[in-house]
Structure formats: C-alpha cells, structure tokens
Simulated assay, not measured.
Amino acid sequence: MKYITFILLFAFTFTACKSELKNDVVSISGRKLMVNEKPYLIKGICYHPVPKGSDKVSFDNLSKDLALMTEAGINTIRVYAPIEDAKVLDQISDAGIKVVLGFGYNQGGKNDILSGSFINYVNKFKNHKAILMWELGNEYNYHPEWFDGDIKNWYKAMNSAADLIHQNDSNHPTTTAHGELPDSLALSMSPNIDVWGMNVYRWDNPEEIFQQWKSISEKPMYLSEAGGDSYMTIAKAGFEKGRNEKAQAAATSKILTKTFANTNINSGVTLFSFTDGWWKAGNNTTQDVGGWAPNSSGVPYDGAPNEEFWGIVDIDRNKKEAYTILKEQYLNLNKKDY
C-alpha cells in the first residue's frame, strides 16, 4: 500500500512539475525580449482571418494557416482581439508559435479595457504557453475622438490596464501598437508599457525609426505593423498599375532587411498581414480596391493602402511572391544567433 501511495505521489509530482515547465516565462533584459532567459526575436505576422462573405474572424482554416506559417519560419502571430477558444491557442502553441494578444478599449464589456473585463481573460490564459505579450490598443493615438477629444484619457487608461496586468501576471510583458514613434506625452504617461510596438509605414525603409527610438527610450521595441499591399493604384517606381505582387514583394524584402539589420535596438516585426481581407473596403464577397487607414501615405509604392490586398497569401491561401520573400528571410534568421 505504501509502495502504491509512493508511486501515485511521484506520478502526481512529476505531472505537476511537467505542467509547470510548459509555462514559459517572458521577460525583458535591457532592449531584449526574453523567453525562458533566452533572447527572442519576433519573426511574425499579423493574423485576422476573415473568410469570404463575412466580417467575422474564423479559425476554420487554422490548420492550413499554421502549416503555411511554420513553413515560412514564422514564430509569432499578432491578433487584434482575444482568442476565446483554448483549443485554438493549444493548436497555435503546438505549432511552436506564440501570440501577441490584443485588447480593445470598448468592446461592449467583453474582454475590454473600459469595463476592466480584459483582466479576466488575462487570468484565464496567463499560464498558456502560446502567450508572448498582452497588447493594449491599436493605433489609438490617431483617435482622440474616441476619448472625449483628449488622448491623455487613453494613455491613462492604457497605463492603468498595464499596471493591473503586472499585478496579476508576472510572466508576460505588456505592449501596445502605437501609430508611429511615441511622443514624449505617450512615453511619460505610460511607464507601465514594457515593450513598445509601433505600426510604421515609411515607404520601404523603416530604418530611421530605430535610431529615433534609441534616442528617446531604453525599452525594447518592435514593429507591430509594417509592409505593403499587392495592388498599385497608380503606376509608380517602375511598378505597373493594378494587381502587383512584385511591388509587394520588393517592399517586403527591403522592409525586412532593414528591420533585422537593427536587432541591437529592435526585437523584430509582425508583418501586415497573413491573408487578404475582403471585408475591409466594399462587398465582402468580392475583392475590392480602396479602403483607408490613418497616416497611410507612406505605403509603398503608391501611397495608397488598398486594404483588401495586404496578405502574403490570398484569401484562398495561395502564396504570393511576398510569402516567398518572407520565408527566405525568416528561415535565414533561424541560422543566426541573436
């Protein structure tokens, strides 16, 4: 009987220890993002899969998407809203991919910052291996009208939300997706943001922002969005008008090259975006030209963000030329020591 009890106790202890080992610790060391005390370079993609004829996210193609991502060397996806199905997070984690998980400000009281309900999600999933960072807001600095006309109201809310996350989860940093380089107001009012994500569209060369960031902050940063679309509104820079995968591929190559040439300051990128989104600009059963995004004049190479053409794969998961470029760069990075 004692022998059986010992075996059961040993099995229970081993299982508990094994479970604890699954929970990665994400931390900060200087300008570096660390996972289990090893530097972590984000080789990422923004992921918001909406099928034809819909405006709602669906993970029905997750298995195929993850296969394409792992083939391309992607290790991180950035999502704009909480993934509520634990099985989806399990599948992402099993593929060896981590998630930058975003919370919105006002989502009707569901997992949002305004109601404070986001912290329930944090506490539910803070021990999940898929989680890399908790993201608060996406380009909200472009929208003071959402905060009674005063952007300081957002920075106060963001900083308080980050503080609450720190109180509940010591194993994952807080981040935000700021539109462009944060100004002194944003930085001074948001000390609880651990890693600054920046959505940066500076044609095909984001390199200047790394030195700009170095001069104003010692915290880690990464490009939470960057990239180009596969439609040229006008002929420009040697690229023809219309659908143009070569323009997107050229921009992707230059952006990624400059991004990963600055890893002493920059912790990587989640390129925008994995798949085309037919829901953005018109009839969601067709792929439409057009769409608008704030501060988007820097989109290569026509200055026009054709919002339904940003995928490195199309909506049927056919690879574009940009996919091949990203794959070459990410797999080459896997051979280097960061």
Rank of each mutant, 00 (worst) to 15 (best):
E208G: 10
F274S: 00
L132S: 00
P300L: 01
P182N: 08
D276T: 01
K254W: 13
S267P: 05
M133D: 01
V100T: 07
L21D: 12
D316K: 12
M232W: 05
G109S: 13
S215I: 10
E207G: 08
N334Y: 14
N171V: 12
S273F: 04
K327V: 08
E328I: 07
K98E: 08
T233E: 14
I113D: 00
N159W: 03
D60P: 06
I312G: 00
K319Y: 09
S224N: 08
S267C: 15
P182G: 02
G104S: 15
S296C: 14
I315D: 06
D150F: 12
V100N: 01
I151H: 00
D194Q: 03
R31N: 09
N111G: 06
T174G: 02
Y231S: 01
S273T: 14
F118V: 02
S215H: 13
G282D: 07
E321V: 04
K52H: 12
W146M: 12
K56Q: 15
D60I: 08
F274M: 03
E145S: 13
N318M: 09
E139F: 07
G277M: 07
G179S: 09
S273P: 04
I97L: 10
Y323A: 02
N318C: 06
M69G: 01
H178G: 03
E307D: 15
S54D: 12
A81D: 13
P220A: 06
N123E: 15
A304L: 11
K241D: 10
T285D: 15
N61G: 06
D85N: 15
V99E: 02
C17T: 13
D94L: 14
G179D: 05
G149H: 08
V99T: 05
E218L: 11
I131T: 01
V269C: 03
S224H: 06
S230Y: 08
G268I: 03
A130M: 08
S117D: 15
D169R: 03
I165P: 00
K52Q: 14
A250G: 12
T175M: 04
S217F: 05
N295K: 14
S188W: 05
G102M: 04
K236T: 11
K320V: 00
K327G: 08
G73I: 03
M69H: 02
A162M: 00
F103H: 06
I7F: 09
K327L: 11
T324L: 11
A72T: 03
N171E: 13
K246L: 14
A226E: 05
Q211A: 14
L326K: 02
Q329L: 12
L68R: 00
V100A: 10
V50I: 15
Y301H: 09
P173D: 05
K43G: 02
Y142E: 11
Y155N: 00
Y47W: 08
W310T: 01
I113Y: 04
L66Y: 04
A177S: 13
F239Q: 09
I77H: 02
